[in-house]
Every structure is written in structure tokens, then in C-alpha cells.
């Protein structure tokens, strides 16, 4: 039983890894398709995603400049830091293959972080562009 579990895990890891190299996994492809429909867009733009990642905005109440880069740094392949000082593993799937594999997690953090930076949720177009940018990084 234990051996079976071990083998299954190994297979799952290998499978996830190999799918990854080819682009988003099945679940994330579905998410991207859904976002495309919602946004009414034919495709997403990595360049727009890059701009979103680097855009800076002054928070209406805190009066401080905020950006995705505040925590994730200007290099998505580098480790970042939360406001409480905790290390955040790189956001780029090229440096951290676990990224953008779990739709629930991705959605949760879009909600939290778009709220933190932009004081609103991100639009389907913005999310699609952002994921596309991250996936395009080598």
C-alpha cells in the first residue's frame, strides 16, 4: 500500500512536471478559457500582464505606493517578502513549478492581492494577462 502511494505520488509529480513544461495544466487551461469568455477577449497579452505586475499605485488611505512588486520584488523569479517579513517563494513558474497549478489558490490570492494593491478585484482580462505573463517567463 505504502509502495503504491509512493509510486502514485512519484507519477503525479512527474506528470505535473511534464505537463508544466508544455504550459498550463488541464485545470489552469480551463481557468484561462473561462477568463477568456468572461473577458470577451480572443487572447491574453503577456505584455499587458507585465505592465500590471510592475504598475505602481498610491493607496487611498495608507498614502503609500503599492505594487505587485512590493512583496514579489521586481523579478518574478526571485523570492519576495510579505509585509510581516516572511519569505515568499518566487511567483514565476520557471523558478517555482508549483505556481499557477491550483486554480483555487490562484483565485484566492488574486482577490487578496488585487484588493491590497488596487483596492478592487482584478478583472478577468487582467487575471488572464497576468497568468499569461507568468507562464511566458523562461
Amino acid at each position: 500500500m505504502k509502495t503504491f502511494k509512493g509510486l502514485a505520488t512519484l507519477a503525479a509529480v512527474f506528470f505535473a512536471g511534464s505537463v508544466y513544461a508544455a504550459g498550463p495544466n488541464a485545470q489552469m487551461s480551463q481557468v484561462l478559457d473561462g477568463l477568456k469568455k468572461e473577458a470577451g477577449a480572443a487572447s491574453f497579452s503577456a505584455e499587458e500582464g507585465r505592465k500590471l505586475y510592475n504598475a505602481k499605485r498610491t493607496h487611498s488611505q495608507k498614502k503609500e505606493e503599492r505594487s505587485c512588486t512590493t512583496c514579489h520584488t521586481s523579478n518574478p523569479a526571485a523570492s519576495g517578502k510579505s509585509t510581516a517579513g516572511k519569505v515568499i517563494e518566487p511567483l514565476s513558474p520557471s523558478a517555482n513549478p508549483q505556481r499557477f497549478t491550483d486554480p483555487k489558490k490562484v483565485e484566492k490570492w488574486f482577490k487578496r492581492n488585487c484588493e491590497w494593491v488596487y483596492e478592487r478585484e482584478c478583472t478577468p482580462k487582467e487575471k488572464g494577462d497576468f497568468i499569461t505573463y507568468m507562464m511566458s517567463l523562461k
Binding site: S82, T83, A84, G85, K86, I88
Partner: peptide, 10 residues
């Protein structure tokens, strides 16, 4: 608890 609470802090 680990997932929800220690992503941002200790």
C-alpha cells in the same frame, strides 16, 4: 492553519 495563516507570517 498552516496554509491559511503562515503564507504571510510566522
Amino acid at each position: 492553519y498552516k496554509q491559511e495563516c503562515s503564507s504571510c507570517h510566522f
